[in-house]
Design a protein around this nucleic acid. Structure first.
Lengths: 207, 207
DNA sequence: TATTTTTATCACCAATTGGTGATATGTTGT
DNA sequence: ACAACATATCACCAATTGGTGATAAAAATA
């Protein structure tokens, strides 16, 4: 019956799939990787585990779909909006790094997925890595490579170090209470110190 | 019978404990964290799992002892040997970072333990983190803090970024085939590019 | 209405998990 | 030789793991 604005059957495949995906997120958030058991996922979703096999082909399929559902790079897409970049990408790089530092710290799901990329080697993670590479390629090939010419590769290496350093520190700060190089990465003070360093290093690189 | 140079009882507690520790290492190396089940560990060690409970109090105790057995920082201890440092620790920092980049890449066990530090929060890992902090404190408080004065904290932040970037990239290179920022972190070429970047950034920091 | 298809549940399986008490076997000291 | 002790094995447990075929219940179609 389609008299209501939305036909709402009590049994809805799409909605159930969403419940499973949300269950993965919830468990990942509370118990971590080791908590991702089919039985637990089903219980958390409030549905029968058989459906995981019917809808996703199994636990791996479900997890793959969960990872794919997180579009990591949506927040870093170019906001320049047609503005011509004439500083060799200095401002863009700096903004990107600083916003990543903030974004990853706040987004625990992303942290888990990044960790996954270091632990496992599943297909869905490769897709994510490829996204990052493609996204970066636009910055490098379009802007910084022409600007740095001979030293283009060195610039890429610097960004690689900073990006991965940012990831590591953000994840470290979440799971550990301990300081890192004497800096409290959870405090506003420690974090602003890292931000200063990022800004400083980019400035120096463009000198 | 003690006719041989060393009395060698067929049943030797210490030797058995070593077998378990080695089994942990082996499994960690081949199957990763998820493979660390008491049954598998015992089978790999060629001993009964009951001994794990008798000798280590359980799986966690065994793993803790394994982690403790890896003294990560042995390779970075000061080699200056009394030489007075008068460049503000520039050479020392650079050497340390470059040697860490190499060491962590080659030592897969350390990679696993570093990953553990991002996943878990066990006591033995905290001890490791404390070791790192204490080790770093010597460099910072003794050498770089006096040199950078006002900017001492910024220098710490820079080292934090580089160290953690190095860790992340090394681990990433091991588990992934994919490039990072367009650099092949497994190739000599890609790795020397990172080395250049490290060297460059330290130079710029001391300018 | 009756029929068919989709959606979801249930009961059950074999294999594996962590864990333990009883027992055997080797080692040492008397 | 013997006992006393340390070392290691074994059989067994309850709970949990991933996985499936039979079946129920709801929805769509006729």
């Amino acid at each position: 019956m389609e008299e209501e604005t939305e036909a709402k059957p009590f049994r809805n495949k799409e909605k159930s799939k969403q419940k499973f995906l949300y269950a993965v997120e919830k468990i990942l958030h509370t118990k971590g990787f080791s908590g991702l058991k089919v039985n637990d996922i089903a219980r958390t979703a409030g549905l029968d585990k058989k459906l995981i096999y019917n809808y996703f082909g199994g636990k791996d399929g479900l997890i793959d779909e969960y990872i794919r559902s997180q579009d990591f790079w949506s927040n870093v897409k170019d906001e320049s909006g047609g503005t011509v970049i004439k500083d060799g990408g200095k401002k863009f790089s700096k903004d990107m790094l600083l916003s990543q530092f903030d974004y990853v710290f706040k987004n625990k799901n992303i942290q888990k997925i990044l960790l996954w990329g270091l632990l496992d080697n599943r297909r869905s993670l490769k897709k994510l890595a490829n996204d990052r590479e493609e996204n970066g390629a636009r910055l490098f090939e379009g802007i910084t490579d022409p600007h740095f010419e001979k030293n283009a590769k060195r610039y890429r290496a610097i960004i690689a170090l900073l990006i991965s350093g940012i990831y590591y520190l953000d994840i470290y700060a979440t799971t550990n209470d301990c300081t890192f190089c004497g800096l409290d990465l959870k405090s506003a003070d420690g974090r602003s110190e890292i931000q200063n360093a990022i800004s400083f290093l980019i400035d120096k690189t463009y000198e």
